[in-house]
Design a binder for these strands. Sequence first.
DNA 1: TACAATCCTC
Length: 605
Amino acid sequence: MAISSPSLLLSFSHAETIPKPSKIDTVNPPNPILLISRCTSLRELMQIQGYAIKSHLHEDVSFITKLINFCTEYPTTSSMSYARQLFDAMPEPDIVVFNSMARGYSRSTTPLEAFSLFVEILEDDYLLPDGYTFPSLLKACAAAKALEEGRQLHCLSMKLGLDDNIYVCPTLINMYTECEDVDAARCVFDGIVEPCVVSYNAMITGYARRNRPNEALSLFREMQGKNLKPNEVTLLSVLSSCSLLGSLDLGKWIHEYAKKHGFCKYVKVITALIDMFAKCGSLDDAVSLFERMRHKDTQAWSAMIVAYANHGQAEKSMLMFERMRSENVQPDEITFLGLLNACSHAGLVEEGREYFSRMVNEYGIVPSIKHYGSMVDLLGRAGHLDDAYRFIDKLPISPTPMLWRILLSACSSHNNLELAEKVSERIFELDDSHGGDYVMLSNLYARNKKWEDVDSLRKVMKDRRAVKVPGCSSIEVNNVVHEFFSGDGVKSVTTKLHKALDEMVKELKLAGYVPDTSIVVHADMNDQEKKITLRYHSEKLAIAFGLLNTPAGTTIRVVKNLRVCRDCHNAAKLISLIFGRKVVLRDVQRFHHFEDGKCSCGDFW
DNA sequence: TACAATCCTC
């Protein structure tokens, strides 16, 4: 268990301020309440409790409350279990001390203990929850993603007339969005007569965290219409929405807004701006902001390491890490996630393994499922498929569908049908509703000309009602984000765009482009139909739209929700050459910079 | 004693 309390880490420097039990002046014993304020570790706190017995304070409610507060401020497993002992020993704990316990649990690794303890005290029927009780308990539910418990608290807060408390409202919204019930959150928000900035922030953040950036931005506009002043928290969520959308124009506007209203003094805002610029494809802007930062914290360094990783510049990610270390900034789990991603995007298997082991052994960071995901990607993408399979099998935690999915995608890159079938089985045992898995496997069957398997898999997919997420690419032109869905070109695309698309494909063919129909799986389509399907891939629609609607020579920035397809990747390389345009394409896992007929990924993806 | 909080496996 990692020590999360800075005060606990300082325990040596102030240790003399708490007298050793043998040195206690029994005539004039030290005042234990004063000692708590000087206390720097749990061990010292326990000593103080020992003196208290001598001065008959050990049953004093305000004294015990102070002890408990100390433990719950930076909760660890041991401090919480000590606090619980103290709490259970109190003959009549009041709601204030319960609130302190709840606050501690909500920030600990066992948040739902707060709820269980709450149910106990309700059954005893002697404590009445107040406006301080609900925020802690709701936060605990949010941390544990416990929707049912959260709903019960919501009902109770209504019964007690506390649901419109200015502190309870935002936490209710946050609890619902963290438990993935965004509509319920919106209901709470809509019920507020005059929402304050914090409630707006809670709702905007909720939308951003649940991947609904358009709704987040529309609330942000609504808020400005009402003349409510955004604060730095608002900007963080709005910037994260820009990042999700790849909306560089809006992001730049927020940057100007931040400069004008003095928000650039917040390290978090600058970090969010760095992330936004990087995710919107403008790595140069991210770098220049970063280099101008006076105080760079762990998060800022990590954001930059992640940025370089996503843009395929592994060397720079690693260099950032060295600089970070030389400036004595401690890396955290996100830093290592960035480094692992950098290595996996560049095929640096040994370096990646090395970082993983340093993270665990040198920095004592417990790997999370995301680190494991990165490792599987690192091994799999580089073609060490069996290693990756064994890696998953040997994990100390049970693998998630996502973990197998990453391996499946590596099997597909390396055309290993045998392992892909085995991996698919493992996925379907856990989750058979994800259409992308069937598509990937059936693509592999198609590449190996196993048409019967393609057909039967399609049937299985249909029977299980698995839905495929449609490919969607977007491009921002003059502050408006335009979305294109694969295949819907025939219906919804304007005549003008059709012409531009025709023109683009014609030029491509002159330059030697041959549509790669092998990646279209439908066995019942003829070659011509396959070519038409390829032509209406969302990436091509968005790029054609960009060619049509942006000035010659400017960079075309496209964001795609899935991985870029091989045929579109080939086409984009040629487009950058023929039309003299840089194309920056962000797909679900990384950036591709196309220039002069080449891609920054070096075709390794 | 309290509310919202950037960077995070595809």
